[in-house]
């Protein structure tokens, strides 16, 4: 469960990226975070991933208050989140398998168990036979799947995805969304930030809309939308 209350993020130069943003996302829910470029989606994503800290307000993820989190505790929080970045952040000098093994190595899984989990994650996103391939040899959609495999390999309860279908064709975008739906159906909370919800394939999800750093209907969440 994610609870954000009166979130404000102001940068040192005075720009206010988020203003008094509040919302609640229940466990196992799929939510689309929409808004134009510069609306504050990526800022909110960074706050939820504890990459940045809010200027005011609070974020509680599964009972853990991020604003009170010590610097040393941040990595342990991130291990519980499946983070998918807009630029994917893949390691191009490592194989597909090594990319997926990295989060498992960080947690300290024994090699055999890590290998089993990584192979399972790659199979889940439809990349079972690309283990030895380097990411540069993958298509955009495959790279995004690899990013998802890396995000879910530690079986997180929450997936945060920033523009996961950006620059993908409709077919690839649909496949990516189907993967997210599959995770949501087994109880994983999924939050997808996107600037272009219209281009997304039909998916049943609640929508939160940001506009110039504010929720478009401040203090309330948008109604459940079936698209």
């Amino acid at each position: 469960m994610i609870v954000a209350e009166a979130l404000t993020k102001r940068y040192p130069e005075g720009r206010e990226a988020l203003r008094n943003v509040s919302f609640t996302i229940s466990a196992g829910e799929m939510v689309l975070l929409t808004g134009h470029s510069g609306a504050g989606k990526s800022t909110l994503f960074r706050l939820l991933a504890a990459i940045e800290r809010p200027t005011a307000g609070s974020i509680v993820i599964n009972g853990q208050n991020l604003t009170a989190l010590s610097r040393k505790a941040v990595p342990y929080l991130r291990r519980k989140l499946g983070l998918i970045f807009q630029d994917r952040k893949l390691l191009f000098d490592r194989t597909v398998l090594d990319n997926v093994l990295l989060p498992l190595a960080i947690v300290g899984h024994p090699p055999k168990e890590a290998l089993r989990r990584a192979q399972a994650a790659l199979a889940k996103v439809g990349l079972p036979n690309r283990e030895k391939t380097f990411p540069i040899a993958l298509s955009g959609g495959e790279q995004q799947r690899l990013a998802i495999a890396r995000a879910v390999v530690n079986r997180p309860a929450i997936i945060l995805a920033d523009e996961p279908t950006a620059n993908l064709d409709a077919g690839s975008a649909r496949e990516i969304l189907e993967i997210f739906v599959a995770f949501q159906q087994v109880g994983v909370t999924v939050l997808i930030a996107t600037h272009d919800p219209v281009s997304l394939p039909i998916v049943q999800a609640r929508t939160l809309r940001l506009d110039k750093g504010e929720m478009s209907e401040p203090g309330s969440e948008q109604a459940l939308a079936t698209r």
């Binding site: 991933a49 990459i51 040393k72 990595p75 342990y76 929080l77 991130r78 291990r79 983070l83 970045f85 952040k89 893949l90 390691l91 000098d93 990295l102 989060p103 960080i106 947690v107 890396r150 995000a151 530690n154």
Partner: peptide, 16 residues
């Protein structure tokens, strides 16, 4: 630098 950034973002501690 890129590898360090990625590792940090997915939960690596300073020690790791």
């Amino acid at each position: 630098a890129a590898e360090i950034e990625v590792a940090r973002l997915i939960g690596a501690t300073d020690a790791f």
